[in-house]
Nucleic acid binder design. Structure first.
Length: 414
RNA sequence: GCGGCUGUAGUUCAGUUGGUUAGAGCACUGGAUUGUGAUUCCAGGUGUCGGGGGUUCGAGUCCCCUCAGCCGCCCCA
């Protein structure tokens, strides 16, 4: 039997309902903060990711769905959406003036990874990016939006960690210090760390091997190496978050997986997700737009895993609420035609009505209506036709009464 | 990419040291009731035991391969 490709899945039923709920909430919250939706192609030229995400990253090294298309273009199914959004901004010259540009996106991403609960090869992200503002205030605003979103979903057990990874100017001094620290106790670190210290020294800091964590005791702290502007920036953000009542913890070992971050980096972890606990990742990436060929524009943003959000929603709230439409059940040929014209009228008025069109007997129609969780079955037989009513049966209560046809819309709405 | 575990009906699961016709609950289907579901009664097993190969007189059970999922690692959302 044919089945979905490994690591991909069909969204339907309860999970789909949570996806809808989450997306609706995201659109509402983002809109009221002045963010507009953008949709970029799933396919991008490979260079977009090599130049932004970084050639040293695992995403680019081993996780990209890449192939040659029929025109000989080397393309990639996007592993994340920030690079694509920036590419679109540059291509359409959306950054020529000095106005901020606030964008959000919702869509599927692809990474060729080993499957695990909460980790798929096709997964979904919601992201928000703020372009053209460099201030800590813009970061606070953006994070307020994120936490408003999470709060409206009713999520709990979330931990915000923040750090500053400095700038390309001050980072080399820290790299030098960490390399020297590492080399002094080289034998105590794992094999992966030996690889990391060359490719991306910051990543050694969040190695999860216990021996490495022990060896890291007393390691140089990046916040000690920040230039004055970055230090003030970081301090100001912490001050704002504290004043705004957004709880966070400072984590000097926090490093994001992508090369493009500058200054603020953060993540939100959930203790309810098992091994794949990262729910949100984000930060500032002031150099990226220019790096991809655009003007020098500061930027800040985050991406949240929709699949993992849905897991949390399911854990916290159980099954997504059902709200099936009322079911109109005609009995006999005359009623069938009348039901179609009635339904047309009610649909035009925006009512949620489903038609029983199988021609099955009343017993079967009620059985399946009940199974779907339908609240009202509207029975339309010969006697009802004659009287101009429907027999409205409340399937939850087991009660039944006659409703004049013209009163049906009003009665269903209350 | 590395290590471990799992896969039997729609679903949750049982299935003995390899043994003949693979079971149970729930769900489902038909009927009691051709205009009344959810309650009751009667009847019904709906299956490529994930797939392929091997061992054997005989495989759901043992072996190999493979596919899918889960857990951990790597990494990340």
């Amino acid at each position: 039997m044919a089945q979905a490709v490994k690591g991909t899945r069909d969204l339907f039923g309860n999970e789909m309902k949570w996806f809808q709920r989450i997306e609706d909430t995201a659109r509402r919250v983002c809109s009221r903060h002045g963010y507009e939706e953008i949709r970029t192609p799933i396919l991008e030229e490979i260079e977009v990711f090599k130049r932004s995400v970084g050639e040293s990253s695992d995403i680019v090294n081993k996780e990209m769905y890449e192939f040659m298309d029929k025109g000989g273009r080397h393309v990639v199914m996007r592993p994340e959406n920030t690079a694509g959004v920036v590419r679109a901004m540059i291509q359409h010259k959306l950054l020529v003036n000095n106005d901020p540009r606030l964008l959000y996106y919702i869509g599927p991403m692809f990474r060729y990874e080993r499957m695990q609960a909460g980790r798929y090869r096709q997964f979904w992200q919601i992201g928000a990016e703020s372009f053209g503002v460099a201030s800590p205030e813009s970061e606070a605003e953006n994070l307020m939006m994120l936490f408003a979103f999470l709060r409206e979903l009713g999520l709990k057990h979330l931990n915000l960690s923040i750090n500053s990874v400095g700038t390309p100017e001050c980072r080399p001094a820290f790299h030098k210090a960490i390399r020297e620290f590492f080399q002094a106790r080289e034998e105590r670190f794992c094999e992966d760390c030996h690889r990391r210290i060359e490719a991306n020294p910051l990543r050694v800091l969040d190695c999860k091997v216990p021996g490495c964590q022990a060896a890291l005791a007393g390691h140089p702290v990046i916040t000690d190496y920040l230039d004055e502007a970055s230090r003030q920036h970081h301090a100001r953000l912490k001050e704002l978050l504290t004043a705004l009542g957004i709880p966070f913890e400072e984590n000097p070992r926090l490093v994001r997986g992508l090369d493009y971050y500058t200054r603020t980096a953060f993540e939100v972890l959930s203790s309810d997700l098992g091994a794949q606990s990262a729910l949100v990742g984000g930060g500032r990436y002031d150099g990226l737009v220019k790096h991809l060929g655009g003007p020098e524009v500061p930027a800040f943003g985050w991406a949240i895993g929709l699949d993992r959000l849905a897991i949390l929603m399911q854990q916290l709230h159980g099954e997504a609420p059902l709200n099936p439409p009322a079911l109109l059940i005609p009995l006999g040929e005359a009623a069938s035609l009348k039901a179609l014209t009635l339904a047309q009228d009610w649909w035009d008025q925006g009512l949620a009505i489903q038609l029983e069109t199988r021609g099955v007997n009343l017993k079967k129609a009620l059985t399946s209506a009940n199974r779907q969780g339908t609240r009202f079955a509207l029975i339309l037989g010969d006697s009802e036709l004659e009287k101009g009513v429907v027999a409205a049966r409340n399937l939850g209560a087991g009660t039944q009464e006659e409703w004049p046809l013209e009163e049906v819309p009003a009665r269903l709405r209350n």
